[in-house]
Amino acid sequence: MASSEIRITGFGGQGVILCGYIIGKAASIFSDMNATLTQSFGPEARGSACSAQVVVNDERVLYPYVTVPNILIAMSRDGYYTHKETLSKDGILVYDESLVEPDEDAPHKYAYGIPASRIAEEMGRKIISNIVMLGFFGAVTKLVPRDAFREAVESSVPEGTQELNLKAFDTGWERGEEAVAPKKQSKPKSSRKTEVAGSAAGG
């Protein structure tokens, strides 16, 4: 029984829930796994702390909640600080380095950053940063095949924005592939510098 527990954190309006929704949909509709998405949000949805949790399992998800996530996707500083301690010791941190600066002595072993907000702005729509993050997360974790993610993106975003969102996803995915390539696997801090420099040059 292979199980992944994923927590996505950010603030309302960033597309945190949509990001979780697409992960779950990719796994349970476009791949042969089971995925349960639960969410928590404050009554004031926009701008307040927000998190989505996805449990992905080969078998039926009996216990639907994330207790010790093995993947944390941090799209806000607050979200990172609130949830970083819950990440399992050998868990994977995926973060938007435009917004989150992980602790030097953080408890997690694997950390991968991408300037998702900056990339999204450079693509002309800040709102797609969640999809950039999603692509990056997909390539880093290989949780489900790339095509399953792409189908889930295409069928989940508003009509007329599919092309832009798929481009955002692909951009994130390619950055993810680079991040997990052997030479860049180690230090999150240096990888962050490389990424920022790369994206500035690319823009």
Binding site: Y21, G24, I29, N34, A35, T36, T38, Q39, V61, P64
Partner: peptide, 9 residues
Amino acid sequence: ECVGHMTER
């Protein structure tokens, strides 16, 4: 609320 807001296949 859990079941209402929980998303699954």
